[in-house]
Nucleic acid binder design. Structure first.
Length: 482
RNA sequence: GACGUGGUGGCGGAGUGGCUGACGCUGCGGUCUGCAAAACCGUAUACACGGGUUCGAUUCCCGUCCACGUCUCCA
């Protein structure tokens, strides 16, 4: 079995063959940092997080680059998003950029998203962008007008190959913009924009003071860190046009080499059936979501749909994800508790083939275009059998328990990021645990005395503060309700 | 309008040319329990509509309807 990926470029599932065996160079379009990240960002970056984690689990040496856009991403009005935010917040652009970059990483860390290896900023790569623009000019793919530089889409016969757009078809419906008169063709896009006096994000260039267009940063930075041709380019489907299309046009025209071999685009996220977007103002931030649901539950929710499909964020769906996540984690908790008192033996090892089957099914699902819903389903089926085993009363040695735990730790934890590596215990947690154990002992005494009124009172009082008790044949265990 | 994706049970959401259409959630019944909880077992009227191809289609093709996305604001 080998990894197969749905390549948006060509729209077919293909066997994944990296340029250099064992290595994967990967670029994912990052956020424009002018506001807090929303759960749509979470969907995208959790998806690529799992993809990177799985590639690494599969043995690939992955170099993961994800940019931070801090300049050049204009609004329809021609105003820079970051400048507008700075004006609204009565702040300065680079402070806005810094604040929201930190906020972004804070959110990603909270969601357990492994950080990219390189997080280059557009504003830190102006020379690289200028150089690429000069190359495009020299090759006749771009032209200068009034201190701005535009890419001539008619110079690239492949323009439109990713999003399946033909120039002829576009022209009829092309929108007139304020600056259209500067362009030779309506579809031409800015590589460099002349800065008006009020535009304070500005740099010197061969064409006067200005700032880079939005698309050129990705081309320039991908080239700098990954080379002219790299393996995987990722992003959100909503950026397929124009952004991704323009990236390809610029890079391939400038480098005379293919840009990315595989394009993976993530489906959008809606909230209660409506598309969420910054401009509509109906977006839920990741910080909002984390108020209501724990990070692993949010990840579980996002991974129940295939990355390329859209997903709808609703309380019902998150509740269902909570239930599914708890089922797996209840099993893991029971497993680890059983391990703590298990003998060093091979007892119960006839379950080992089932463990191997679980791993095999998981790999098969993930090898099929990172099919996390199927991988998750396999883990759930495995959990059913694990629960049955753990509750069967038969003696279980450390060997089999360790093997089961490894599945949860490496696949549920290491790849999907929804299972903890161990039961974390802070010092506060230890004190809390000791107190709960004390109450459990008191309740046990009451039960021995058949004083059920008292034992039930303890149980319901604990439940009120979110601690759930479970009486098992070998004693009472407890957990914090999520 | 163009391009693209999709319409699966009470909900979310996989998947397949024929074998009982996963998995999770929810509901109901059962086992276990002092009672619960957790877990396990069982169960519930699902493949938008109309044609076509085929021995046979939910799965392939065409059309219709609907939903969503993109068409230089967005991961």
């Amino acid at each position: 079995m080998s990894l197969r990926i749905f390549n948006v470029l060509g729209r077919e599932k293909q066997e994944f063959v990296p340029i250099e065996p064992g290595r994967v160079n990967m670029y994912v379009c990052g956020p424009t940092v002018y506001d807090h990240a929303h759960i749509g960002h979470a969907k995208s970056y959790v998806a690529f997080d799992v993809i990177v984690r799985y590639l690494r689990y599969s043995g690939y040496d992955v170099l993961y680059v994800q940019n931070i856009t801090d300049v050049g991403h204009l609004l329809e009005t021609g105003e820079d998003r970051i400048l507008r935010k700075a004006r609204q917040a009565q702040s300065v652009p680079m402070k806005i950029v810094e604040d929201y970059t930190r906020s972004y990483f804070e959110d990603m860390d909270a969601l357990g998203v492994v950080r990219p290896d390189i997080s280059p900023r557009a504003s830190g790569h102006i020379p690289e962008q200028i150089k690429m623009i000069e190359t495009l000019l020299a090759k006749g793919h771009a032209y200068v007008v009034n201190g701005s530089v535009y890419f001539d889409v008619t110079s690239d016969p492949d323009y439109g190959k990713l999003s399946n757009r033909r120039l002829e078809e576009q022209e009829a419906g092309a929108r007139d913009t304020v600056r259209a008169d500067e362009k030779r063709n309506p579809e031409d896009f800015a590589l460099w924009k002349k800065a008006e006096p009020e535009h304070i994000l500005r740099w010197d260039s061969p064409w006067g003071e200005g700032f880079p267009g939005w698309h050129i940063e990705c081309s320039a930075m991908a080239k700098k860190y990954l080379g002219t041709t790299f393996d995987i380019h990722g992003g959100g489907i909503d950026n397929i046009f124009p952004h991704n299309e323009c990236e390809i046009a610029q890079s391939e025209s400038a480098n005379d080499a293919p840009f990315a071999n595989y394009w993976l685009l993530v489906g959008s996220l809606t909230v209660d059936g409506v598309k969420m977007s910054k401009s509509l103002g109906n977006f839920r931030t990741i910080k909002d979501a984390l108020q209501s649901y724990r990070p692993e539950v949010i990840r579980t929710f996002l991974l129940t749909a295939h990355y390329s499909n859209p997903i709808d964020y609703s309380d019902d769906a998150l509740q269902a994800a909570t239930g599914g996540w708890e089922r797996i984690n209840n099993a893991v908790r029971l497993l680890r508790r059983t391990m703590a008192g298990a003998p060093q033996s091979e007892a119960g090892s006839d379950f080992l083939p089932r463990v191997e089957e679980a791993r095999r099914a998981f790999i098969e699902a993930m090898d099929d275009d990172f099919n996390t819903p199927r991988a998750l389903a396999g883990l759930q089926e495995f959990t059913r059998d694990v629960n049955a085993l753990l509750n069967s009363g038969q003696p279980l040695g450390l060997a089999i328990l360790t093997a089961i735990n490894a599945v949860y730790t490496t696949l549920g934890g290491g790849v999907l990021g929804i299972v903890g590596q161990s039961e974390a215990a802070s010092s506060d947690g230890q004190r809390e645990a000791a107190l709960v154990e004390l109450l459990i002992a008191m309740r046990a005494q009451a039960r021995v005395n058949k004083n059920y009124a008292e034992s039930d009172r303890i149980r319901s009082e604990l439940a009120r503060i979110g601690i759930v008790l479970e009486d098992r044949p070998d004693g009472t265990i407890w957990r914090v309700q999520s």
